[in-house]
């Protein structure tokens, strides 16, 4: 059993940016249409923004306000599929026997966004980049719990997926739209609102996966809007049970 204190959170999806928009989405969720929308990340000078991919902008946008400039906090970056748009573009250049862009190639690793966070925020501590299966979110939260157990006052967790290029349609069926969720797990910032307390439990089981209507990180966002909630999320032999404590 793991205790998790969610001190604060932010989420982004096309057309869903404000707390009010997420409240409305939580009440009656829908899949927003998208045409490459991305946050402007105007908190960064243009020269620092220019190498940020769409996913990087979205991830930084949600994580940015959760960490104070005076804090050093570990980061857990989680994405099951990573930057499929970039990967596909690079593979296209390989197939066409074109030289690869050094910038694109250099950033085509799963921990690139964690590295950009570290540089842009001056964060010198641990960072972890996770690509799990359909329960990537739970693995990210487990990682956060272990970091807190090792003494971190709080951990920033970012879970993000980008709608993949059409070529991946036969393989990736769990990203109905691009999204990111950032959570501050552990101690709150001084000016923060109320935290919520959760217990996460893993029990072994061998059944088919439960079908979830939305990516689980977004189901969790819905649950954050309810005073009491319990969620069950099964993938292969792993059954995760989430319980919100009063």
């Amino acid at each position: 059993m793991i205790d998790l204190r969610i001190a604060d959170w932010r989420a982004w999806a096309p057309g869903l940016e404000s707390a009010e928009a997420w409240q409305a989405w939580a009440n009656a969720p829908w899949a927003p249409a998208e045409q490459g929308e991305q946050p402007d990340c105007s908190f960064l000078p243009a020269m620092q923004r220019r190498r940020l991919s769409r996913m990087a902008r979205i991830a930084l946008h949600v994580a940015w306000p959760l960490c104070g400039d005076d804090e050093q906090l570990p980061l857990v970056f989680a994405s099951r599929h990573g930057e499929t748009t970039r990967t596909y573009a690079i593979l296209g250049d390989v197939a066409d026997r074109q030289p690869l862009s050094p910038t694109q190639f250099g950033l085509s690793v799963h921990n690139a966004i964690a590295g950009q966070w570290s540089i842009l925020r001056g964060q010198r501590g641990e960072s972890t980049a996770i690509a799990g299966e359909a329960d990537t979110f739970e693995h990210a939260m487990l990682e956060a719990a272990t970091l807190i157990d090792q003494g971190a006052p709080a951990v920033i967790v970012v879970m993000t997926e980008e709608r993949p290029p059409e070529a991946y349609a036969d393989w990736i069926d769990d990203v109905p739209f691009t999204y990111a969720v950032a959570l501050r797990v552990g101690a709150s910032r001084p000016d923060a609102g109320a935290a919520s307390h959760w217990q996460l439990q893993l029990s072994g089981r061998t059944t088919q996966a439960d079908h979830t209507d939305w990516p689980f990180a977004l189901d969790f966002v819905r649950a954050l809007h309810r005073p009491a909630a319990s969620l069950m999320h099964t993938w292969k032999t792993r059954q995760w049970i989430w319980q919100r404590n009063p």
């Binding site: 020269m47 030289p99 862009s101 050094p102 910038t103 250099g106």
Partner: peptide
Amino acid sequence: LGLDSIDALELALALQK
């Protein structure tokens, strides 16, 4: 302009193309 070494590589590639 404030470019760095990765920009130099990227720019060399673009000039060649």
